[in-house]
Computed example of a mutant assay.
Amino acid sequence: MTPFVSGFTNQCIMSIVRNAKIINHDFLQHCLTLFPGSMSLAFAYGSGVFSQKNNAKSGQMVDFIFAVDDPQGWHEANIAKNPRHYSFLKYLGSGTVSSWQKDYGAKVYFNTLVPVENGTIKYGVISTAALLSDLLDWDTLYVAGRLHKPCRILRPPASDDLSTALRLNLQSALHTALLLLPSHFSERELYTKIASLSYIGDFRMWVGEDKNKVSNIVDGQLQEFSELYAPARESLSEFMEVTNGSGRQDVSPAARFYHLSMLPRELQQTCVTRRWNRDGRHRDVEDVLRAAACDIYSNGVIVGGLGDITRMRNISQSIKGIFTAGLIKSVRYSARKLTKMFRSMRR
């Protein structure tokens, strides 16, 4: 079998998100006008934008991510324009705010519970360079993981590099999910596995998140997932197929080795290889991948590697949020999350 690179394009991303079930497009566009315009990518995501099972969009906070080339300059302009969005860190200057963004946690700076006309929003700011690295290498899986799921692209990618990275991030998610699935699976199981990748090892799934979060996401957006991953599935047509809601794949060592060889650098070369070599031997990356391809129990190493990526980053990002949001907003935000969690436990 000879793998080939997908022809997935930025235009495909645009057509997919335009056809998704979007809440109040005018509201999303209005929100963008409240911020400095120098963004290399802007998107909205989550339950405030897309339908989720057992989760009405009405009254939900809407989440945004903004990628910017110059974080310090962007924060300087935004502090001047929207000073009330920031915690006490604004008094230390845009350089300090930018350092908190780039040097701690998942390299994202969030302002949360921001009131706007007819709603409430949360927005995260990440540098374009950090976003590219996360999409390609899965350094943190923090923003890359959000882009594994349907998102509303509001400001298209400003460069071919960013468009390519968005495409490769979806392909990486598909490779990883296939390694964790059996030879036969349902289409829903495929997207549930993809949607769960960035939550593996996330402590918030134990405390503070809806216990049915992943299944609610997939069940409310199954068609959107199918359209989003159609080009990536086509690129792997020699290894898998999905027809009428049912999927099957080649699980031979050769196919598994191909998927393993296409994993992002952080997962492949750092996490999986390090875990495989815990017996004290020092095999190189290729030897580890070939051994894992032949081992039917190697899924645990991949799952453990995903947890290694997300665990500490999510903890440090949450701690960072206490300072970037401020104590009062942090308490209010956590209370909202806990309320959703308890509601899901009662279902």
Rank of each mutant, 00 (worst) to 15 (best):
G321R: 13
R256E: 04
M312T: 10
N299E: 15
G280A: 03
R248N: 13
G300Q: 11
S318A: 15
I302S: 06
I328S: 11
C271F: 01
M262N: 12
I296W: 13
G326T: 05
A255R: 01
V272D: 01
R290C: 07
D284S: 15
T273D: 01
V285G: 05
G321H: 03
S318M: 14
A293P: 00
P264M: 04
G305E: 08
A293D: 05
D287N: 12
A292D: 04
G247I: 00
L267G: 03
C294V: 00
F239H: 08
K329S: 09
G304M: 01
R278L: 11
W276Q: 08
S318N: 12
P264C: 13
V242T: 05
L327T: 11
L289Q: 11
V272C: 10
G304H: 08
G245P: 01
R248L: 10
Y258T: 04
T324K: 06
A292C: 14
D279H: 11
Y258M: 08
R278N: 05
L306V: 09
G304C: 08
R265L: 06
L306Q: 05
I309S: 05
H259R: 12
R283I: 00
V242Q: 14
R248H: 12
H259Y: 10
G245C: 06
Y297S: 05
T243V: 14
R248T: 08
Q249Y: 07
M240H: 10
I315S: 05
R281H: 12
V272Q: 05
K329M: 00
D284E: 06
E241L: 14
S252V: 00
Y297T: 03
C294Y: 00
D279G: 06
G326C: 05
P264T: 00
N244M: 06
R265W: 08
N244G: 10
V288Y: 06
L289T: 01
E286F: 12
H259W: 12
R313G: 00
G280R: 12
G300F: 01
T270F: 11
E241V: 07
A291F: 02
W276P: 01
V251M: 04
I328W: 14
R275G: 04
E266W: 06
S261A: 11
D295A: 03
H259M: 15
I302W: 11
L327I: 06
L327S: 09
L327A: 14
